[in-house]
């Protein structure tokens, strides 16, 4: 799948923003006064900035509001609702921290839950797609939510929690690499099933349907850059999880904030791989994967 920068930026930044706001809402990082305004601002900027980035890959972004209409069937629509609800429910908590009034803990819990639901919906946009076997696995939402919480814990300066979550993230990433590599074979699709010509014999491409590029080849049969896949995987796991975990173990606010940046580098690498290494079954018609 084509790793569109807008979608990578969106899912990484929004994930981190919502993860951060989970910890802010639950009061892990007690903030008050003017500082609260700026700290909540970081959370909102990450979450909203990511959502705005996501609209950059739309063909007709001026109609984006229509995406709220199909929450009954569409995970993308549900994500829109969850994001808006989470941001609205967070608002009184943010204002309360800034202006110094209390918000009931139930409300705080609801806000945190909505933030997590948003990240879950983002992940389900990918996990629901059967035609991309690597994504079509329950570990995909687990990975997105672990990323969100681990990054959020770092940003909220929760050294112990961040350490545990980052180690969990490393495990989830490694397991998902292992499982993901076997997903296409598990889906059991081949040129023979794609064409139905397996009933006659072994199928090979004789001639392609067109000599030029097309949308399918650009969008779903992306093969550029798989060469460095293994190296990028190591960079992703080291930067997103292992190094920040070690930095969290040492502790200290400065080191934790530095760890956020190391974590982001790894998160971008991991999310790029999430797209670039995902193979769509339509590639079978072109004899490619």
């Amino acid at each position: 799948m084509h790793p569109a920068p807008s979608v990578i930026i969106f899912s990484v930044l929004s994930g981190l923003g919502f993860g951060f706001m989970v910890f802010l809402a639950l009061g892990f990082l007690p903030v008050a006064g003017g500082a609260a305004f700026w700290i909540w601002g970081v959370g909102y900027a990450l979450a909203v900035g990511g959502l705005i980035a996501a609209t950059a890959h739309l063909g007709n972004p001026q109609r984006a509001l229509k995406a709220f209409s199909q929450w009954r069937s569409s995970w993308l629509s549900r994500e829109g609702w969850a994001a808006v609800l989470a941001l609205f429910v967070m608002a009184p908590i943010a204002l309360g921290d800034w202006l110094g009034f209390g918000v009931p803990f139930v409300w705080r819990g609801l806000a945190a839950a909505l933030a997590l639901v948003t990240v879950f919906c983002t992940a389900m946009i990918y996990a629901q797609i059967k035609a991309v076997p690597r994504w079509h696995h329950w570990l995909t939402p687990v990975m997105f939510m672990t990323f969100s919480l681990a990054g959020g814990a770092l940003l909220a300066l929760q050294a112990v929690l961040a350490f545990v979550l980052l180690l969990g993230l490393a495990v989830v990433m490694l397991v998902l690499f292992y499982v993901g590599d076997r997903q296409f074979a598990r889906a059991g699709q081949s040129m023979e099933t794609a064409t139905g010509l397996g009933r006659i014999g072994k199928v090979a491409v004789f001639e392609q349907p067109h000599t030029g590029e097309n949308y399918l080849l650009r969008e779903m049969i992306f093969v550029v850059g798989r060469k460095h896949g293994q190296k990028l995987r190591m960079i992703a796991v080291l930067c997103a999880a292992v190094l920040p975990a070690l930095m969290a173990a040492v502790g200290g606010a400065g080191l934790l904030l530095a760890a956020v940046f190391v974590h982001l580098v790894g998160a971008f690498a991991a999310r790029w791989l999430f797209f670039a290494q995902a193979e769509h079954v339509v590639g079978l018609y072109y004899g490619k994967r």
Partner: peptide
């Protein structure tokens, strides 16, 4: 007139 061009439907289709 309702399509925002997000491309998700093209991803969901196994047949291109």
């Amino acid at each position: 007139s309702d399509c925002i061009g997000c491309g998700l439907c093209a991803w969901a289709c196994p047949y291109g």
